[in-house]
Write a protein that binds this DNA or RNA. Structure first.
Lengths: 191, 191
DNA sequence: GTCTATAGTGCGATAGAC
DNA sequence: GTCTATCGCACTATAGAC
């Protein structure tokens, strides 16, 4: 028999989301989360650098699908087409089954500025990674940054639309629409 | 004679920037900043909700020039043209004289994730405000959000280029160039 | 695992300005 | 008298050091 139950991190994350959505993020203490997972406060901070990270750790893995999408883009592709390939390529990370969980998590984040800040930092970090990948393909600045940031913007807008959607649309369908909207925005001039 | 010296907030902000850039943000305590300004820690927190806010309070006023730029845009203008008017209209907030101060402040922010988070939240808040103003002009979603976010992206990229610039270019000139870059990005298709 | 510093809050007291 | 900026003290939670 094991000395401790496995999956401490996952238990902490599950307990945290439940407590945050149940009684509120701010008044939930790290000690409470740890206790709910059968662990001590010290262990909580051994797994997560700070209280906010409990909602974000693991989420980082979704950078790879974006990078894979960039590599999958053909040689002649426009910077924005490359980014589009990245964003749409990462759509597999958000199957319909995950939507209920994503909605709950997003509700908690939107209600707490501290968590919004952390999410924005993660998105900014993703954009910086994408921009670096574009530069690696020979795209110059500021085009690389603009394309990367635009891609992340499309992803964020699409993600919100996907969470709100009631028709069962997949996130990559929504992303394609939003990319077309973005193209229309800059293309159309006043009559 | 007054019981307290006036301008407590400004004194705190000045002392904070000096200490942050001199010995580092993290190891500078709120009590130290207060002491350097001839005040107590409790007074520091009466002026600023948290330690990070000391670098951002007052900065909020720069939302107004953006909104003024939106109102100044002609009726027939494209969403992106309206946003462009907002971003370029706010350029007056950053005269060359402010550049040395802006550079110092930015150096401190870039070196500390906590401060980056706060800056990102402020930018997200600005984007949300601009998107609301666009919807007020009849722009539908998701076009309003996309245009607003794109505008803020152009502003951020331009601001960084302005800080790095050695030729004495004004920020609105840089912004115009970056807006053209953005247009080129989405317009050009692979050959 | 314990111990400590710092961030941040709540409340009451003070003492001018009006 | 009221209003407001400040201080002082007690307190909790976070987070890092040892």
């Amino acid at each position: 028999m094991a000395r401790w139950e496995p999956g401490a991190r996952e238990r902490l994350q599950k307990a945290a989301l439940e407590l945050f959505s149940g009684k509120g993020y701010e008044i939930t203490t790290a000690a409470e989360i740890a206790q709910a997972a059968g662990l001590t406060e010290r262990t909580f901070f051994r797994h997560f650098a700070d209280k906010r990270e409990v909602l974000f750790t693991g989420q980082d893995e979704f950078t790879s699908p974006f990078l894979a999408g960039i590599e999958a883009a053909p040689q002649g592709a426009t910077p924005l087409e490359v980014v589009s390939s990245a964003v749409i390529g990462a759509a597999g990370f958000f199957p319909v089954e995950k939507r209920a969980y994503s909605r709950l998590r997003q509700t908690v984040i939107v209600a707490n500025p501290e968590l919004q800040e952390r999410e924005l930092l993660k998105m900014a970090s993703l954009a910086a990674t994408l921009a670096a990948a574009l530069r690696g393909r020979g795209v110059a600045e500021p085009a690389a940054s603009l394309a990367a940031e635009s891609g992340v913007t499309v992803f964020r807008v699409s993600f919100e639309l996907w969470l709100a959607d009631e028709t069962g649309a997949s996130i990559d369908d929504i992303e394609r629409k939003v990319f077309r909207e973005l193209g229309a925005l800059t293309a159309v001039t006043a009559e």
